[in-house]
Design a protein around this nucleic acid. Structure first.
Lengths: 191, 191
DNA sequence: ACGGCAAGCAAGTACCCGCTTGCTTTCGGA
DNA sequence: TCCGAAAGCAAGCGGGTACTTGCTTGCCGT
């Protein structure tokens, strides 16, 4: 692993554990196994380093697209929900920290780049296609349904490990149930 | 307002804006219009002060109980959802900050005292009563439905003001839609 | 063999942090 | 009127923080 990437990786980890103020240059350097001064030589300042580290750590590794022509909606929704959940769950620590500091430091997390927002738009477009094909109830409010499904996945991924008492079953099983409930709420026709 | 409560109030506000590290004793004292030393005379240390401030700010002002004997489930769910949402939305800043720091400082927010957990248990019990009365589908997974509804309200309350582009309509209208979708997912019988 | 570059090391600067000490002011009740 | 408690004020202590400077070490291509 290149030194620069090692530093960015360490910075993102320390940040998601301790926040901006807690992510001191000493801690980041120690975590990266690098002299503290190397950080400044490479990135100029702590702020610029964390900006880049969070930007890199925030990009989705595998973007999960819903098909342009729905074929098997229930199965497509299920796999999409699972990959979206996994993406959110993998970054849960970073998301929690960044959300907590977003009021104080809004520039650290560009909102239009947020994975959640993109996923929501993707889902909304897919539901519109389903409705156009007459596969879901016509009267349903698609925006509310989108936010409901996204919110469910988001809340589960972000709170599951901090209030485990509320989650009796494993994530995959929960998501199957979520998909089932959403399908019934939309009155989804089976293909 | 008593001096002690003024300090606690200021501490909770500064904490929810800047987190534990950012909530310096100087800032809290300035916000409360009080000499910094007064904080230490009253609470001993910054940690104890913030502990108490967060504990006080975290208790729900109006706890919203669901009736023991369901009469009009749809209306009861709607008013419960609205008050729960308002409660979460009013504390959104504190919740975000505390959640972001929960890994590093788990003792600051006792989990069993969390408003969200209590609300979830309340909802789960109510849904069980509805099922026992045969007013919702028997096969539905009540735990998943509970987490879905709670997660929807939680995610909306916490992210609405930081990604306003995703929320086109006002909260009350959204919640009406959420209740409608959940009612259909549960196959709720009208009374 | 040597020149240049990247990284490490030691030390220091100016500032902010939680917290303490010693003292003065304010004010309400006996 | 006086006493004592509560709050304010000024100064400081030890430690951590971001960041800088000056110098040394190791490595790589020519």
């Amino acid at each position: 692993m290149e030194l620069r990437d090692r530093i960015l990786d360490a910075a993102a980890k320390v940040y998601s554990e301790t926040g901006f103020r807690g992510a001191t240059t000493r801690r980041i350097a120690e975590r990266a196994g690098v002299n503290e001064i190397t950080l400044f030589r490479h990135f100029g300042s702590k702020t610029r380093l964390l900006h880049e580290a969070i930007r890199c750590a925030g990009v989705a590794s595998n973007l999960c697209a819903l098909p342009a022509r729905p074929a098997d909606p229930r199965a497509e929704l299920a796999t999409w929900a699972l990959t979206t959940f996994r993406e959110l769950f993998a970054r849960r620590s970073l998301i929690r920290t960044a959300m907590g500091e977003l009021e104080e430091r809004p520039d650290l997390l560009p909102p239009d780049q947020s994975h959640t927002v993109c996923a929501g738009q993707e889902l909304h477009g897919y539901l519109e296609r389903l409705r156009a094909m007459g596969m879901i109830r016509a009267e349903v409010d698609l925006m509310a349904a989108t936010m409901m499904f996204m919110g469910t996945l988001f809340a589960d991924a972000i709170t599951r490990d901090i209030i485990p008492a509320m989650y009796r079953q494993d994530p995959e099983q929960s998501i199957v149930h979520y998909v089932d409930l959403i399908a019934r709420a939309l009155d989804l026709k089976e293909s």
